[in-house]
Simulated assay, not measured.
Amino acid sequence: MESLKKRLAAEEQQKAELTAFRVHAVSQLATQHEEITRLRAALAAGGVVRSLPTGPGAS
């Protein structure tokens, strides 16, 4: 019975860690989306938005 309680506690801890990771990841994605939206709007309005190099070896 004790081993089942330990397994349950470990699974609950893992679930809590995965939930925290997911919340953090979604928050980062939302922040990135907002920044992309802001930059696109600035570009469309003729603002000064500089493109970054892309691709392998870009500098």
Score class of each variant (00 low, 15 high):
Ser59Ala: 08
Leu29Ala: 15
Leu52Val: 09
Gly46Met: 05
Ala45Glu: 10
Ala30Asp: 14
Glu2Arg: 11
Met1His: 04
Ser59His: 03
Leu43Cys: 10
Glu34Lys: 09
His33Cys: 07
Arg38His: 14
Pro53Glu: 02
Lys15Ala: 15
Thr31Met: 08
Thr31Ala: 15
Gly47Glu: 04
Glu12Asp: 07
Glu34Leu: 12
Ala9Thr: 14
Val26Ser: 10
Ile36Thr: 09
Arg38Met: 12
Ala16Phe: 00
Glu17Val: 01
Gly55Tyr: 05
Ala20Arg: 11
Gly55Lys: 03
Lys5Thr: 10
Ser27Pro: 00
Gln13Val: 01
Ala41Lys: 12
Gln32Trp: 06
His33Gln: 13
Ala44Arg: 12
Gly47Met: 06
Ser51Gly: 03
Ala16Val: 00
Val49Gln: 06
Gln32Asn: 12
Ala44Asn: 10
Ser51Asp: 08
Leu43Arg: 15
Leu18Asn: 13
Gly47Pro: 02
Val23Asn: 12
Lys6Trp: 03
Val48Gln: 06
Leu18Lys: 12
Gly57Arg: 02
Ala42Met: 13
Thr37Phe: 09
Ser3Phe: 08
Thr37Glu: 14
Ser51Asn: 07
Gln32Tyr: 08
Ala9His: 13
Ala42Asp: 08
Pro56Gln: 07
Leu4His: 09
Val48Tyr: 02
Leu18Glu: 14
Ile36Ala: 14
Val23Gly: 00
Ala10Val: 06
His33Arg: 09
Ser3Thr: 12
Gly57Gln: 03
Thr37Arg: 14
Arg50Pro: 00
Arg22Cys: 02
Ala30Lys: 11
Ala20Cys: 03
Gly57Trp: 01
Ala16Lys: 03
Arg50Met: 04
Ser27Arg: 07
Gln32Pro: 00
Ala45Thr: 04
Glu2Ile: 12
Glu11Lys: 13
His33Glu: 12
Pro56Trp: 05
Val23Trp: 00
Arg7Glu: 15
Pro56Tyr: 08
Glu12Cys: 01
Ser59Cys: 04
Ala58Cys: 10
Thr54Cys: 07
Val48Asp: 06
Leu29Phe: 14
Leu4Thr: 07
Gln28Tyr: 04
Ser3Asn: 09
Ala58Thr: 06
Ala10Arg: 11
Lys6Phe: 05
Arg38Glu: 14
Lys6Asp: 10
Val49Phe: 04
Arg7Ile: 14
Ser59Glu: 05
Val23His: 05
Ala42Phe: 05
Ala45Asn: 11
Ala44Thr: 08
Ala25Val: 04
Gln32Leu: 15
Ser51Gln: 09
